[in-house]
Structure formats: structure tokens, C-alpha cells
Nucleic acid binder design. Structure first.
Length: 279
DNA sequence: ATCCAGGATCTCC
DNA sequence: GGAGATCATGGA
């Protein structure tokens, strides 16, 4: 099999994978990652600015997954204008791109994310996939489809370590199988309508819904608010004063507009890695 | 060991 | 309708 090179500007593979938006990647030797999305696996590396696919991958799919057609230089330019803090966050990780992830997997993953650590979330998703997904290659399994999870009980999920989230996962599967969460239909909804639809699922509050909106549906005006963004935002833009969730949303929407989702991810990764506003 | 995690929900007033 | 407790689990 033959290597394929891809020169994609403003793209760091490691920053994009490790900034907290996805969970199905594994760092291999020599700066290479194994990434899974849906039924696909890719072995991907990066040499300088050049992305390397090591053979057999569905390249068009992965270019879409990595949001390859978008001009991030313009986004970053808009965000940095008159905003030195954002400038710092972006220069910390200028190669973040917002992924386009599959809906159901994103839904389940971010239900699992609540009150949980990223390493542990990754472990739970791996176990769920091994238990109920389809074998792809070696130790690699696809994330199970809703059909593969039909009939899996709350207790089954608890047995895999999902804890209180088991009830939420079971409810999500039931509702998706119920038919009111078909991706083609969901795409047509406004961001507000789609958020409300998602929040019908038990265990999906605004933050989880917003992560799905941003990381799966490409609603880049959405600004998911978690503990880190709260810390970073208040530290960076409010001289430490805590805003209420509603006020923070309003403030961020006003400040970042249509680019709020990108801004959020730059700030989130920078703030978390630098432990801004903590301790 | 003990803390805490990319929160949501339930229960009080 | 806002504040506070509760929820399971294991990585750090």
C-alpha cells in the first residue's frame, strides 16, 4: 500500500486530536496516530506541514472529517483582531481544526463525558465498541450503531463502568431508534431547534447538546460552556469575575459571533493545558 | 489516599 | 428559579 501526502494549511494533527473534541484516537510510535470514525480506521502522521496517510485510507472521507476545505487563516485573523488573549490562545495551538464527527457516536460520547475525565471517557468508548461494535482490524472496533445497541440495558452499561450514565445511554438509544433523530432531518433544523430536540434525551443538557452541535453538525456559532471555559473566560475577559451561564453565553456570542465555536476550542485547549484559573 | 472530572438532574426553598 | 446535594467510577 502506498503512502498519500496531504498538504493542509493550519492543521496540526496532534492539536486537532488532543484538544478534547474527540475520543477515538491513539498515539502510536514515531508521532503517528490511529484514528477511528464510524467503520473507518486511519493511520495518520505528520511530517512538517504535510499529513501522511500510511495506506488504504478513504482519503476524501478523512479530508471531510478534518474539515479540510475551510479557510482557518481567515477565522483566526478575525478572532485575533483586537484580542491579544485570543492571539495567545491561537498561537498556543494554531493547528486546531473542528472535526466533523458522526452524530450517534458524538451523542453517546458526550453523554459519557459528563462529570468524567477524558482518559476515562476514551476507555469507556473503547469498551463499548469492543463489546457491541463491529470488528475492524486487530484490536480495533467501530463504535456500535443504534441497532447494535438495541436491547442493551442500563445494567449492561453500568457493568462496563458507565455508572449513572447507563440510564442516559439506554434512553438515547431508545429515542434514536424511535426515529425522531434521523441525521438528514436534524440537519434541516435551526441551531435552536436542534438543541431543543437533543435536550429531550435524558442526560443531554445544554453543554452536551452544544458539543454535538459544534463537533458533529458544524454549527460553528455555538459556544459549549464547561468548567474550563468558565474559568478561562472569566479570567481572560472578566478579570476573574464569574458570570452566570446565561450572561457568559451572551457575552461570548457578542464577542465571537459566527466564530464562537472555533474561539471556544482555542480557549478551551489553551486554558486547560495552561491550567488557567485553577489552583 | 483523596480528589475530581469537557454535567445533568432532583430537591429543596 | 437559583443554590446545593447527588450520582459511579477510576485516572492522577
Amino acid at each position: 500500500m502506498e503512502k498519500v501526502y496531504w498538504d493542509c494549511p493550519d492543521f496540526s494533527l496532534s492539536q486537532t486530536l488532543e484538544c478534547g473534541q474527540c475520543f477515538r484516537y491513539q498515539k502510536e510510535d514515531n508521532n503517528c496516530y490511529t484514528v477511528i470514525s464510524g467503520q473507518r480506521v486511519a493511520t495518520i502522521g505528520q511530517v512538517g506541514g504535510s499529513i501522511v496517510f500510511y495506506g488504504g485510507e478513504d482519503i476524501p472521507f478523512w479530508k471531510g472529517y478534518f474539515d479540510g476545505d475551510r479557510n482557518y487563516e481567515e477565522i483566526k485573523k478575525r478572532l485575533c483582531k483586537d484580542d491579544p488573549i485570543m492571539g495567545q490562545a491561537i498561537s498556543f495551538a494554531p493547528g486546531i481544526r473542528i472535526l466533523r464527527q458522526e452524530f450517534f457516536e458524538t451523542l453517546m460520547s458526550f453523554i459519557l463525558s459528563q462529570n468524567n475525565h477524558i482518559p476515562r471517557i476514551k476507555g469507556l468508548i473503547r469498551r463499548l465498541s469492543q463489546e457491541f461494535g463491529t470488528h475492524i482490524d486487530k484490536e480495533l472496533y467501530s463504535f456500535p450503531t443504534p441497532e447494535q445497541l438495541a436491547g442493551v440495558s442500563e445494567e449492561n452499561y453500568r457493568g462496563l463502568g458507565c455508572g449513572f450514565r447507563g440510564r442516559y445511554l439506554a434512553d438515547a438509544v431508545e429515542k434514536v431508534l424511535g426515529g425522531s433523530f434521523k441525521q438528514e432531518e436534524l440537519e434541516k433544523l435551526s441551531t435552536r431547534e436542534l438543541r431543543q430536540r437533543l435536550m429531550v434525551i435524558c442526560g443531554v443538557g445544554q453543554k452536551v447538546a452544544d458539543c454535538i452541535l459544534l463537533f458533529s453538525f458544524g454549527r460553528h456559532e455555538v459556544f459549549p460552556m464547561d468548567v474550563w471555559i468558565n474559568r478561562v473566560y472569566s479570567h481572560a475577559y472578566c478579570s476573574g469575575a464569574k458570570l452566570s451561564p446565561v450572561d457568559l453565553q451572551k457575552s461570548a456570542a457578542e464577542k465571537f459571533g459566527e466564530d464562537a465555536g472555533f474561539a471556544q476550542q482555542y480557549l478551551f485547549y489553551y486554558g486547560r493545558e495552561m491550567k488557567i484559573g485553577k489552583g
